[in-house]
Design a protein around this nucleic acid. Sequence first.
DNA 1: TTTTAAATGCAACATTGTTGCATTTAAAGG
DNA 2: CCTTTAAATGCAACAATGTTGCATTTAAAA
Lengths: 133, 133
Amino acid sequence: MDAATTLKKHDLKVTKIRLAILDALGKTELAKPYAELQATLAEFDRTTLYRTLLALMEKGLIHKALEENGESYYALCSDCSIETHVHDHMHFKCTTCGVVQCLDLPKRLKFSAPGIHIDSIEVVAKGQCSNCN
Amino acid sequence: MDAATTLKKHDLKVTKIRLAILDALGKTELAKPYAELQATLAEFDRTTLYRTLLALMEKGLIHKALEENGESYYALCSDCSIETHVHDHMHFKCTTCGVVQCLDLPKRLKFSAPGIHIDSIEVVAKGQCSNCN
DNA sequence: TTTTAAATGCAACATTGTTGCATTTAAAGG
DNA sequence: CCTTTAAATGCAACAATGTTGCATTTAAAA
């Protein structure tokens, strides 16, 4: 499914910056840092970028994969095309080259603690990617 | 062990703001958001707070428990008194009242993925705390 | 083609991060 | 208890990102 169709399916108008963001994130399976997105999309006002990222996140087309030292990394949702918005994956950051990617989790994690009710779990792993080790 | 002794053991001079930060974080087992720390420690310059938090993190007395929407939550390290700096715990945020706390993990987590080498894993869970459910 | 709600661009301001530098201070040594 | 000095602090300044209001433009429905 192309980006324009995806946007329409999520009740979002097809606009230039929305196509550009999906294109920028869609070229690889990797998460992109905000600064890189802003540089790539420098032709647009940064307020528009800010609001567009919010809109795409709200509709479940993209997600914030990692937030580290004030820098946010964004990635496409692998399940863009379906209704429910689940994340059966973890986020991995290579501490050598800096890439951030989404990895599948073999099974859904379960944790528990007395008295608390857990709705969602996020996992962030750090180490060396296949290019760096 | 009191805060002054803890500072000395980690080669940090005993200063007013360092004692104040350890005191602010030490009253409970909960992580405190940066804004709250800054308000509590308003008598100090925010640059000093910034550099002091860095110093305390570098020496392993405190850690950043969570970073969410640009807000960082800080907490004491439970193993302040020992040499090695390990975190066999997860971070939990109550989506109702907003509290962030460190919870023990029953066992050390292990993940693997083809081609990559994982050094560390962080887990962030969200849900309702014991007061809110 | 017309209409209009939504999207965009621009201005403005808040918060946090970050560095340089002059001043103050903790604490070691005499 | 003093002197000394490396470290800590406060202040100024700037960068990056988050956030809102409002006027203008535009996607897409009628």
